[in-house]
Design a protein around this nucleic acid. Structure first.
Lengths: 333, 333
DNA sequence: CCAAAATATCGAATCGTTTCTACGTCGCTT
DNA sequence: AAGCGACGTAGAAACGATTCGATATTTTGG
């Protein structure tokens, strides 16, 4: 910056004024400064600027597992929105480990990010005081219990309802749900949606049709095995998570049970390739990009609002969409 | 930091000495400092430190499309390695747009990252001078032509060879390749591998069996349509990219052509769900995590080596692995 | 055409660290 | 018992920007 000032024959304050447009600069000198900037191909040091202004124009994004295809799409929504507003994104993967998550949050604080988007991991400890006075935080996708504001997620209760209703409308009465990890809000909410609709329709919810726990492929496989061994196996299975669903499909393939003729299968999260499965999969699609975008927008609002006034927190629910394909059908007589 | 110093009754230099262990501090005072740090729950300001030391302990990662399942796995490898070494990751998505890529590189320079991992986009301009004197760069996955060092990618020539050999060994002679975008090194290299093996085996390479261009689902669909309309359609199709493959599968499903009975199909990049397709897909798997890890390691070496000495660049090729499943079989008589 | 008002520019202090130099203190040696 | 290293510690100057009060320049009005 000093070099630019010297070359343009002005002071650094003037260069700064040109750069930020905070203060008027006479056109002739402005041009000299701009020329000097291109001549030296000078780019301001964001680090130094951040130190002085107390604002880094960077946000942290913490996800539990970036290889879960759900999160990259969310991140894309965040990235686009952040970039448009002139923010950079620091990416952290907690690998579903609360300890690592906390480390990441400390690092992010150390780097003085302006705010954080957090998809917390399964057994995260209570937050509350971790953030107190550090930075604004918006929870995305996974919302800790009792966190009523500053959150963006799919409307998972509705998602669970819609899926259940679809199966009932097809004529299913014995519906099983692999509910996933009930410590995580999306799974908890989908189960709630399921329960609600079953009650509305006066259908019994059988304990043995409700399986919760971990959400890996093997868990889905094992759960499906249990269901098939029941005296009265379900005619439809909903899996609250992509990997559980794969496990279910694997077991059904092993036993050469035909979908949807012998059993209907439905999943949450709709990925590009779900259409290309055979049969193509019925699923409740989340608007992942929108989750990221909304989350980022909410966070930027929190960041840019006056520190004085009471934070205007919102809680956003993004609608989901049932995509009916060929893995669900009326139950066989 | 001043507060910590005051509370511990020492100078800020001493606090700094305790923090960095650069200079010995008497145990008794060290304890007082550490106590003060926990009492005030002080975390040093990485921004200020970076300004002073000229080192940010941050690296940039630029990918062309984070929703392409390949990259999140690479990023995971990067993230883990970076975190272990005390570096943070700034994520940038160029969305296959060279202009945006350049913007991102400027931002990263402005933020004074210590180095950058770059998976460049299709029509990136020559680099060379963009980086000159800015920061070390390691290319991952996609290597610009003539870039001989400071690169990490799969051994795509070998990948192409292995795939081709597999099909030939099954008895195929009419093999088509959807070669993808020849401006991108992975696609170019796979095609080269294909060519090499076909020549070795003295098999003709027919122009109409070689289709290059964009790499979206529709492109695969269209290319497959062309192939099927030939007087002599191929008995096997290899698709150089995941989405091309989906397009192929879609068209084959539309025409109810059975895989592998009527035609064999093979892809590159092996994803979790490839096993669960029906038929399960034969594919050449890349070691994505390792690409990220190696790339990051190479970059950290470049960063941490003495600025004076000549940079010791390496070019790493990660082996691939053919996973034979049910989408390839001997051609029907 | 000059004083006053308005506008533009400059210099210096500052953000929170690190690091260099200078100084103080302690324990040995003789 | 005094002097000399060795070892610790403190103070102050930087890093590269922003920003504020002070000063210089231009414009305006009478």
């Amino acid at each position: 910056m000093r070099d630019v000032a010297r070359l343009a024959g002005v002071s650094t304050s003037t260069v700064s004024a040109v750069l930020n447009g905070t203060v008027p600069v006479r056109p002739e000198r402005k041009k000299r400064v701009l020329d000097a900037i291109t001549a030296l191909d000078y780019l301001p040091d964001t680090i130094a600027r951040g130190l002085k202004t107390g604002k880094t124009n960077a946000i942290g994004v913490v996800v539990p597992d970036i290889t879960n295809a759900f999160y990259p799409e969310v991140i894309r929504g965040v990235e686009v929105t952040a970039q448009k507003a002139g923010y950079s994104v620091l990416l952290c993967d907690s690998n579903e480990d609360p300890h690592r998550e906390e480390e990441h949050l400390n690092t992010l604080f150390s780097r003085r990010v302006d705010g954080v988007l957090l998809a917390c991991c399964a057994d995260s400890t209570a937050y509350g005081n971790t953030f107190r006075g550090r930075f604004p935080v918006v929870f995305v996708d996974r919302v800790p219990p009792m966190m009523l504001e500053g959150t963006v997620a799919s409307d998972n209760v509705q998602a669970g309802s819609v899926a259940t209703r679809h199966l009932i409308d097809l004529g299913h009465r014995q519906i099983a749900m692999l509910a996933g990890h009930l410590g995580l809000s999306p799974h908890r909410d989908r189960l709630e949606g399921f329960r609600k609709v079953m009650q509305e329709k006066h259908l019994p919810i059988l304990d043995e049709y409700l399986i919760s726990g971990d959400v890996q492929i093997e868990d889905g496989l094992e759960a499906c095995r249990q269901l098939l061994e029941l005296k009265q196996p379900p005619t439809a299975i909903m899996a609250s998570n992509n990997k559980l669903l794969l496990g279910v499909l694997e077991l059904l393939a092993q036993r050469t049970i035909r979908v949807p003729q012998q059993i209907s299968v439905l999943g949450f999260d709709d990925y590009l390739w779900n259409r290309y499965f055979n049969p193509s999969l019925t699923a409740v699609a989340q608007n992942t990009f929108e989750i990221g975008k909304s989350g980022c927008e909410l966070l930027l609002e929190l960041i840019e609002q006056d520190q004085e006034e009471e934070p205007v927190l919102r809680s956003v629910r993004i609608p989901t969409e049932l995509r009916i394909r060929n893995s669900t059908a009326a139950p066989s007589a």
